[in-house]
Simulated assay, not measured.
Amino acid sequence: MLDNFQPIDDSVNSNTTLSQALLFMKEHRYWSETTFDSYQYDVKLFEAYLTSQGLKNTLENGQHLSIVNRWIVQQKENDVAYKTIMRRIAALSSLFAFYKDLGIVQTNAFKASSVPEEHVEPHSRTLELDDLKMVYGAVEGLKKEGIYIGVPIKLLLFTGFRNHAITKLKVENINWEEDLIVYNQKVRNSKNKVQVLPLPPKFME
């Protein structure tokens, strides 16, 4: 068994591309395919940035704080959402933490970086119990007038979906046996994961 063993420094070194390094790391992680796809997407974005700066997309070039900070600034200038930037930083930080622990790189600039948080007021306040009672009362009132909007309104409340997400739902998104909605759109959500959302059985009826 040990005859085929190769030390990591024979497989990956500081001149290895980020994508190749991620593939090697995948062999030592219990990732789902969606998790790996998310990491790969973020790694390729950073690789594209390195290339645009005239640099090779290697572990060596990706570990410098000045380069990482410039990448963050560029994303902010391109109006990339704060949470999206933070997710990308977390993905790259995991990659470099892995290879720092193995002695392949010396630093993890992503862990040392930060993104100035946006101070944006929420679009609306959180609903209190009295607010929910008013919403249900309004739904029942409209029902008596022949206006049936209870299903979409309650679906919004139970799932936290926004209007655009509800308009994308199809019958095949509903798992009737398990009382679930499985929301898997081609457009990635903030965590790049399929959303599995349980619904109350009475609502499913």
Rank of each mutant, 00 (worst) to 15 (best):
I8P: 07
I8T: 11
D9V: 14
D10Q: 14
T17R: 13
L18T: 06
S19W: 07
Q20H: 09
L22A: 08
F24S: 04
F24M: 13
M25N: 05
H28I: 07
W31S: 07
S32F: 06
S38D: 13
Q40P: 03
Y41H: 10
V43R: 03
V43N: 04
L45W: 01
A48K: 09
A48V: 05
S52C: 04
G54N: 08
G54R: 00
L55I: 01
K56C: 02
T58D: 15
E60D: 12
E60P: 05
G62R: 15
G62L: 13
Q63A: 04
H64I: 11
I67A: 10
I67N: 06
N69H: 13
R70G: 14
R70P: 09
R70M: 13
K76D: 15
E77D: 12
N78V: 11
A81P: 11
M86D: 07
M86Q: 14
R87A: 08
R87Y: 03
R88Y: 12
A90L: 07
S93K: 15
Y99D: 00
Y99R: 11
D101P: 02
T107A: 04
T107E: 05
A109H: 06
F110V: 11
S113R: 05
S113L: 00
S113F: 00
S114E: 10
E117P: 09
E118Y: 14
V120E: 15
E121T: 15
P122G: 07
T126R: 03
L129Q: 14
K133Y: 05
K133P: 03
V135F: 09
Y136N: 09
V139M: 11
K143N: 09
I147R: 09
Y148L: 10
P152D: 10
L156A: 12
F158N: 08
G160P: 02
F161C: 00
R162G: 04
R162D: 06
N163Y: 15
H164D: 11
A165V: 05
T167G: 00
K168Y: 03
L169I: 13
K170T: 10
N173L: 05
L180T: 07
I181R: 08
V182K: 15
V182Y: 12
Y183W: 10
Y183I: 00
V187N: 08
V187K: 00
R188P: 01
R188Q: 09
N189K: 08
K191S: 00
K193G: 01
V196G: 02
V196Q: 02
L197N: 12
P200F: 14
P200I: 12
M204I: 01
M204P: 04
